[in-house]
Design a protein around this nucleic acid. Structure first.
Length: 660
DNA sequence: GGGCCCGCAGGG
DNA sequence: CCCTGCGGGCCC
């Protein structure tokens, strides 16, 4: 009943707003009425060639002639006139957002305020705005409903406008609209270069290399979680942590000529696993945090990634021993033939390259790869069905699944097949089909569960493959139907190496911090804090490089900088020049994006809803926080003798070198 | 962004 | 002990 009411209300708002005019999607289904109109009921825009459902147009063309020369609602008005969040079901007040932005700018300009106070004021302003709709009872009702039920968001507001489902692997356009990666790619594949929602032009880089908005993934997941809490379901906790507390860093030895991490030695290994440990790193091997290495965990660089045991080698992409199997791989775009589909990917072996001249890596292949050394190690893991840890690096530019920054642990995969083929560069390469089999959901999916066994993808290059290796018989790491979990079905291979991390028997180990469930507030701060003001994002925006900031914060960074644009015509010849303005988090030039920043309304909705959830359960959480804060440990600063033996060896070697 | 160079870590 | 290696910093 309530639901019907809500739907009718939404439909009414849609019609009243009159601005919500939507075309047909890629499958010819009207995005407004969801029906599939016949050709006769469809009209095509002469400018953007998009089909529209005539019955759903507020002012359809009247004559046959005007039908042929028809411009759709988007093309008939210049883009800057299109009010940006035009959707009737948008919960924000109809006040132009520029007012809000102006007020926020005023706060920013107030020199009497500290950054923290400014952030607080911004937030107050935002929530005040949302409440100041009292004179409009309907709007208030709508808002109240929203605050009460995150479920609404999941049902309607967040939906991808192609498939009308929650965006799966969401990508965000510069105009602030969210779609499934697949739907978006399908749309682009049809030759479209405008946003399906607002018709803003999508930059070609975003079109060809969309990257998943991981913040929105977390938002959707949290909204789902919050929903299950409301309905009294079991409380699940998803850990998506970033390695914020980095205690012991990599260091530069005496021998190294340069500072920084270019030639640094690894810092302490924090986990108590040997370097030939297979499978996930469990909590019992994480004395530092007692939580283990969790899917989604991120690191700055390879040295840091190593310290947490996800992948030990500092440069190499494959960790493994030819007689024992491979434990982990890194995907970082080092080999052209790699192909990433998230839940499965095709990986290329190492070698085949001329590394003479003191090179560590190279892009040019000059001979065939063979199944030897680490390539053989991967082959062993394939045959035995061992779990392989997978780390993705931001350096892989072609993959939608790569993290925006640094490296990320994406969980366990199995190598289902391996073979050799002639690679892009004309020499033979070893190839591996990796398929995900982890109990935790992947960082890009809003699924609440991990992987289920899935059919193998069809690999066309197998037709031309040689030396095909497949597993025969059972896999060591397998899905246990009775338990619905992936686990060892045979004993894991025994380790042949020592545990690098501090001996737990020494008694000098760090105090173990008990892992605990994160409060909603903590999670909000952790997942949705702006990289600039460090507060929960007000007016979140998503850059084309998939970084999220508060709109005013990002604008603040570039205050006073002028945009120099190419001018095609008129008066004096201006030098064709444009200012490059880099994203605060990566080297992407976002100067075009900065000129027309659009708020990611859908992300904002989720954050606001979750915020209002917090206010409900505030008191109990506060108590919980105080107790835990009181427990905060004092670090052991006592013994300086703990320096690892590797430092000593390095020093010795340095002396030998010097004596020459 | 591309080329170059370096010390480190691990396999064999 | 030698060789390899999907880094990272710096210079251009």
């Amino acid at each position: 009943m309530m639901e019907d009411d809500a739907k009718r209300q939404l439909k009414a708002t849609n019609i009243m707003a009159n601005k919500t005019q939507l075309p047909c999607d890629g499958d010819g289904i009207c995005m407004l009425c969801k029906a599939k109109p016949s050709d006769l009921e469809t009209i095509t825009c002469k400018t953007c060639v998009t089909p529209w459902h005539v019955d759903c147009l507020s002012s359809p063309p009247e004559t046959l002639e005007s039908t042929l020369q028809w411009d759709c609602p988007d093309c008939s008005s210049p883009p800057e006139d299109v009010p940006l969040p035009p959707l009737g079901n948008n919960p924000l007040p109809t006040t132009p957002s520029s007012d809000l932005v102006a007020s926020i700018r005023a706060i920013e300009a107030d020199v009497s305020l500290t950054d923290r106070e400014k952030a607080k004021k911004r937030q107050e302003l935002l929530s005040g705005k949302l409440q100041s709709d009292k004179d409009d009872p309907d709007a208030n009702k709508e808002k109240k409903k929203k605050g009460d039920d995150v479920l609404d968001l999941l049902d309607e507001r967040l939906n991808c406008s192609f498939c009308m489902q929650l965006p799966e692997r969401p990508v965000t356009t510069p105009c602030g609209h969210n779609f499934c990666l697949k739907c978006f790619q399908k749309w682009i594949g049809q030759g479209k270069n405008t946003c399906a929602k607002c018709r803003c032009v999508i930059p070609s880089k975003m079109a060809s290399q969309p990257r998943i908005n991981s913040t929105l993934v977390v938002a959707i997941r949290m909204a789902k979680l919050s929903k299950s809490l409301v309905s009294g379901g079991p409380q699940k906790v998803y850990h998506f942590v970033h390695n914020q507390n980095r205690p012991d860093k990599a260091y530069t030895t005496d021998r190294a000529q340069r500072n920084g991490k270019a030639n640094a030695a690894s810092g302490k290994i924090f986990v108590t696993i040997p370097s030939d440990h297979f499978g996930p790193i469990p909590a019992e091997n994480d004395p530092e945090r007692n939580q283990g290495v969790l899917v989604g965990e991120c690191w700055e660089d390879r040295l840091e990634c190593r310290q947490w045991g996800a992948h030990f080698p500092h440069v190499a992409g494959i960790a493994g021993q030819s007689n024992n199997g491979a434990q982990s791989v890194v995907l970082s775009g080092g080999y052209q033939d790699d192909e990433d589909h998230g839940e499965w990917f095709l990986y290329t072996g190492s070698g085949g390259r001329d590394l003479s001249g003191n090179k560590r890596t190279s892009k040019d292949q000059s001979f065939d790869q063979k199944f030897e050394k680490s390539n053989q190690a991967l082959q062993v893991s394939c045959l035995k069905g061992y779990p392989v840890r997978v780390v993705r690096s931001h350096k892989e530019k072609r993959s939608s699944y790569a993290p925006e920054k640094g490296l990320r642990y994406d969980g366990i995969y199995r190598i289902e097949k391996c073979w050799r083929k002639v690679g892009i560069q004309g020499f033979k390469v070893c190839r591996y089909l990796f398929v995900r089999c982890d109990n935790e959901p992947a960082p890009w999916t809003s699924d609440e569960h991990g992987d289920r066994p899935r059919p193998l993808p069809k690999i066309s290059e197998l037709k031309k493959a040689t030396d095909i290796t497949e597993r025969k018989g059972g896999s060591s790491w397998d899905f246990d139907e009775s338990d619905s979990r992936w686990k060892w079905s045979k004993a894991p291979p025994t380790s042949k190496r020592p545990v690098e991390a501090e001996d737990s028997a020494s008694g000098k180990r760090r105090k173990i911090r008990q892992s605990r469930n994160m409060s909603v507030r903590e999670r909000l701060l952790k997942e949705f804090s702006c990289r600039i003001c460090r507060e929960v994002m007000s007016l979140p925006i998503t850059t084309p490089c998939a970084h999220n900031f508060c709109k005013p914060c990002l604008e603040g960074v570039f205050v006073g900088k002028t945009f120099l644009r190419e001018r095609s015509s008129g008066g004096r010849a201006l030098r064709s020049q444009k200012n490059v303005m880099n994203c605060p988090c990566c080297p992407t030039d976002i100067s075009d994006f900065l000129q027309n920043i659009q708020v990611n309304r859908e992300l904002l909705d989720v954050i606001e809803s979750l915020k209002s959830k917090i206010e409900e359960g505030d008191a109990s959480e506060k108590l919980c926080e105080e107790v835990i804060d009181g427990e905060e440990e004092g670090r052991d600063g006592s013994n300086g003798n703990e320096s690892s033996s590797s430092v000593e060896t390095t020093r010795k070697r340095a002396k030998v070198d010097d004596s020459e």
